[in-house]
Design a protein around this nucleic acid. Structure first.
Lengths: 329, 329
DNA sequence: ATGAAAGCGCTAACAC
DNA sequence: GTGTTAGCGCTTTCAT
């Protein structure tokens, strides 16, 4: 593997000139440029990013912290991040935290040790103090979930409003006994969506029955299924379910079916996120669409801006209620 | 941000000694070590990986090339890769190729330019020649899919045998008219699974009807749905479907339902991969379990071995037919 | 337009 | 056990 010195020697120029050619500076004669390019080709030279990055004090790597890679909600976001990163000549270091502080700390070290230029965090609650502190000295953006007073810019949607509209839809089509399948209250979105649920009920003079609120221990469908089991064991069964994620809603759907009940005839179901699979269930799932791809795109742009020292403002994106079969009739 | 020199100065020792402390060498007096550690703490020093990596001519990054991040089949594999990488003190650079040669080339450059120490490729067919060539000079492992004569080690399963068993199961429970929903034949696994399908039919003296073989243009469920539409438009409807992936099978399921047909009563369905969703469908999906997590684990180990110059052997892992509701009765 | 040389932050060979 | 120093491969300032 040749280095820049050998190229310079072979081309009969100085390393500075080679570097100029490499970086497309126009202060090089066409003739000299040709010589250098020939040498590069002949020696099969590839400039080392290790050298360049050290010199430039940057890694051109963005750390993406994601709780769980298997959750399809994040796939779309990552898509947006990656495409934007590529455009801006960055690459992403995808890191799964499993909501584990130790794990997250390993990844934080990458930015502390200059192996990453900044962080997009999607699970800031894991380690709020550390994140907040790190945010003072390093470029960080929060995406979807955010720690409110971390002072770190975020991009997200209005979860309260979105949940409010979802539940209002259920009320509008005649439901009065609506269960909430929520995840752990440690998540900001969980608290916000619950507030939206309450707001809708109150606004329509419906009694908010604590017995109709179920909290899951995890985010996978199996937890939706478990929760639904509890819902169905109630003496007075609700006629509708609002689940705070499609995954939970799909688990609920499964459980409803296994009791030979029909959706939406016996029970209507609304999910949240509009993951691809929500359109493949039987029946298809009414859900709240989040602009996942766009959110990723924006988070990446914000982060690169931040890295470059620009001012960055938090952003709240639009959502949309998508009515499908699970709430028909 | 302090550097090693400032730490050395502050501690009253040389940079070499600081480096020794940093790397846990035991040739340092306890007293000296303390001094250094104090200085590190006081200065809030974090060693730069940029410097270290340049010096060591390594990046400690593994490039993971994946066709599509939204496909849940890969999520589990990536999980295995990442956990193993962390254990071995590496990190992963996750890159989505979208089966696009240009895109892949951008990523190949990362390893050519020393920003990654090796590659785990999951879609080697995109760019076989380039990959083969790169494999001569760089550490590469193929995972799941592989280019047969690239000479690059791989870890996978026996796709022919797995498909053979899946179809045999359908035959055993009485089906004689079995359609194949296959993806593009450009994929090795698609060709291998089709051979397994044929083998099972032949072995039972069943006629292989070309009209029962359907090729999709893509891998998402919408393509399974499309294919199923064609299947159902046949004059003589098959009684069973073997789809080469769960995603396709789930799309097929959807289409079957929308024709008010019942699975497995009217049509039995078998998928492939055992993705998490395959247990959430209605009915649950009979499928072939691939050891995705283990495959990722092994691929990562193989790659690190290769990077360290060790000999690496290709590996074929076990699979398992998981019989669920979609083929009951 | 080009070259010489310093230096990014680190490790390790060598000397004591 | 510790220090001195070269050098990993690059970019950039300052000369010329």
């Amino acid at each position: 593997m040749a280095n820049i010195h050998q190229v310079a020697k072979h081309a009969g120029v100085s390393v500075a000139t080679v570097s100029r050619v490499l970086n497309g500076q126009n202060s090089v004669t066409a003739k000299t440029r040709i010589k250098v390019e020939d040498a590069i080709k002949q020696l099969n030279y590839e400039p080392s990013l290790l050298g360049r990055n050290l010199r430039n004090s940057e890694s051109r790597l963005l750390l993406v912290l994601i709780p769980n890679i298997s959750n399809p909600f994040y796939s779309e976001i990552i898509n947006g991040i990656e495409n934007t990163a590529i455009d801006l000549n960055y690459n992403i270091l995808l890191c799964e935290t499993d909501t584990n502080p130790d794990r997250e700390n390993i990844y934080f070290d990458l930015v502390r040790k200059k192996m990453a230029d900044g962080i997009i965090s999607m699970d800031p609650a894991v380690n709020v103090e550390t994140l907040t502190k790190l945010g003072k000295t390093h470029a960080i953006i929060q995406c979807s979930e955010y720690a409110v007073d971390s002072g770190i810019p975020y991009v997200t949607i209005d979860n309260l409003e979105a949940a409010y509209r979802a539940v209002k839809h259920l009320i509008r089509i005649g439901h009065t006994r609506i269960a909430l399948i929520n995840s752990d209250q440690k998540y900001l979105y969980a608290r916000q969506r619950q507030l939206g649920y309450q707001k809708a009920l109150e606004e329509h003079g419906l009694h908010m029955d604590e017995e109709l609120i179920f909290h899951t221990q995890g985010l996978g469908f199996e937890y939706g299924q478990q929760a639904m089991k509890k819902v169905l064991s109630q003496k007075q069964r609700p006629t509708a379910i609002f689940a705070v994620s499609d995954l939970l809603a799909i688990g609920a759907l499964k459980e409803i079916h296994s009791h030979s009940l029909k959706v939406p005839e016996d029970i209507a179901v609304v999910g949240f996120d509009k993951i691809a699979f929500s359109n493949m269930t039987h029946p298809t799932l009414t859900t709240v669409a989040q602009p996942m791809y766009q959110m990723g795109t924006i988070a990446a742009k914000m982060l690169v801006d931040k890295i470059q020292g620009k001012e960055v403002e938090s952003l709240i994106l639009d959502h949309e209620l998508v009515i499908r079969e699970s709430t028909l009739g």
